[in-house]
Design a protein around this nucleic acid. Structure first.
Length: 492
RNA sequence: CGGGGUGUAGCGUAGCCCGGUUAUCGCGCCACGUUUGGGACGUGGAGGCCGCAGGUUCGAAUCCUGCCACCCCGACCA
């Protein structure tokens, strides 16, 4: 393995791919488009899961689990949803293999074992879930139904990239049912807020909350809320979506309830999800040419301690001091790892922990034992300082917060300086080409204009920002009247 | 799925155009010794169906065909 990463300036996408593999987050597998998430990468995902799961439960949701397979007849019930996903579905047609009589030692699909009805491997679970909900909901007393599931889904993508787009990915999908339109809309908004809070407070990724334009909307949704993040290369990444589904699924699956007036009505629905794609967002927001940079709130190890010693006696003395430090840090709920491997030298350990984004590194050697100090190194700034043992714990505790804030603020400054207002199409094109990032521009609200802009520039409408003011103007492309600015960007 | 490119040891590669001894080099790996405050050094060693399958040939990493995977650019997409 070569020691250095390709730099971001040299080739951003190569840098990303190398980083994912070298930091031991994930690798490609023998299965087309499907990745193996390695223990270190999975540990980060588990931290994300734990926080999100806590937030879902705090907002009243419960977890459940629905099948991987969806009978084709159920899948096709909600027309728009089915149409939207049809082109990327894996389908199970048989249930048995047999020895191949023409090919010794090989197996073949048993032609006798054809399924009566094909099973679609879920690209999303609305169909099977709504078919189930039909049996769970009779009265307004059964509502709201607030369910989340952690699952894998399969979308047969043409071009895949580790974490950003894989044929199989892990995610959570919330599926809720409500009495009223208003209540469902509030739910969709609440969950989009949860995503925004999670992104900003835990991932240290600033996001724009907004609404999708009609053409970018989820297949089967009436309204799609989203959080959009900006990556270091100036491209946008849709980091999470929350959909108001209206009564589309209730009607498709005949989910009716008796309301307080004793009348039958269809329930109102939402669905919302974030995926392992968030790992990609995390990497592309903070990391540098030395490797991964993790915000303390998501780092599997927040602190790593590297001993520097010449003799076994020295290592023993250091270990005694380190045990005390670890005990004190853990009492403050700081996760710490003592890297006392005898098989690697300090320099190699430094490099590895930098590559893997450990927020703080403590080095302690004979010199420190004499002076009652340690060397403290920050991953985000790559700065080092000598700290006395007495002040260490407090210092580390403070740095956990400071690093988290600093990463967010740095990303926020970058994002804010890459939202550019433009007034005409020439400006639009030149900003997109020269600077990248989000372009705030007036749009006439038509799909035709949106398509045309996409065709010419590859930029799409990322969202209609929720906190955006309604200031009238003229469309940057058509010159027709516009009620508000929207955000355009090239996207992942 | 369309256009372009690349597949040689765990990783990065030379050789391929112009077929011919035992497939090159570096990193990594293993053993021993010396080392340890930023990716150690020395000596010795192991590791290859040259992406896979078929073909041409006395002979294929090298030529031909098909397939697969990966990368880049499009289309699609969270």
């Amino acid at each position: 393995m070569s020691k250095k990463l390709t730099s971001r300036a040299e080739d951003y996408s190569k840098w990303y791919n190398e980083l994912v593999v070298k930091a031991d987050l994930a690798e490609n597998s023998a299965v087309r488009g499907c990745m193996v998430i390695k223990p270190y990468g999975y540990a980060i995902w588990e931290k994300m899961q734990a926080e999100l799961d806590r937030m879902f439960k705090e907002t009243g949701h419960q977890n459940a689990y629905f099948p991987l397979f969806v009978p084709k007849s159920l899948f096709e019930a909600e027309e728009k949803n089915a149409e939207g996903f049809a082109k990327e579905c894996a389908v199970v047609t048989h249930y048995r293999l047999q020895n191949d009589p023409d090919n010794e030692g090989k197996l073949r699909v048993d032609p006798e074992a054809k399924l009566e009805e094909e099973l679609v491997v879920r690209p999303t679970s609305e169909a099977i879930i709504w078919n189930t909900y039909k049996g769970w909901i009779q009265s307004y007393r059964d509502l709201p139904l607030l369910i989340n599931q952690w699952a894998n889904v399969v979308r047969w993508e043409m071009r895949t990239r580790l974490f950003l787009r894989t044929a199989e990915f892990l995610w959570q999908e919330g599926h809720t049912a409500h009495e009223t339109r208003t209540e469902a809309i509030t739910e969709a908004e609440t969950m989009n807020n949860v995503y925004a809070t999670f992104a900003e407070e835990f991932m240290a990724i600033p996001v724009v909350q907004g609404l999708k334009s009609e053409s970018e909307r989820f297949a089967g949704a009436e309204e799609t809320y989203c959080i959009e993040a900006l990556m270091q290369d100036g491209k946008a990444l849709q980091a999470g979506t929350s959909h108001f589904l209206g009564q589309n699924f209730a009607k498709a699956f005949d989910v009716k309830f008796t309301n307080k007036e004793g009348k039958q009505d269809y329930v109102w629905a939402t669905s919302w999800g974030v995926s392992t794609r968030l790992m990609g967002a995390l990497i592309m927001t903070h990391s540098d040419d030395q490797g991964l940079v993790l915000p303390p709130n998501l780092a599997p190890n927040q602190v790593v301690i590297v001993p520097i010693y010449k003799t076994d006696e020295q290592l023993e003395q250091i270990t005694d001091v380190v045990n005390g430090i670890m005990k004190d840090l853990r009492a403050k709920h700081i996760t710490v790892k003592f890297d006392n491997r005898t098989t690697h030298r300090p320099g190699a350990k430094f490099a590895q922990h930098e590559l893997q984004g450990v927020p703080l590194r403590i080095a302690i050697g004979a010199r420190d034992l004499e002076n009652g100090t340690v060397e403290l190194a920050r991953r985000d700034t790559l700065t080092k300082e000598t700290v006395s043992l007495e002040s260490l714990i407090e210092k580390v505790e403070g740095l956990m917060v400071e690093i988290q804030d600093s990463l967010f603020n740095k990303a926020l400054d970058f994002r804010n300086s890459h939202i550019t207002e433009v007034e005409n199409f020439e400006e639009f094109k030149s900003v997109l080409k020269e600077k990248g990032g989000f372009i705030s521009a007036h749009w006439d609200g038509t799909i035709e204009t949106e398509d045309k802009i996409k065709e010419i520039t590859k930029a799409t409408i990322r969202c209609l920002p929720i906190d955006g003011e309604l200031v009238e103007g003229v469309c940057v492309y058509s010159g027709k009247p516009s009620k508000r600015r929207v955000l355009f960007a090239k996207a992942y």
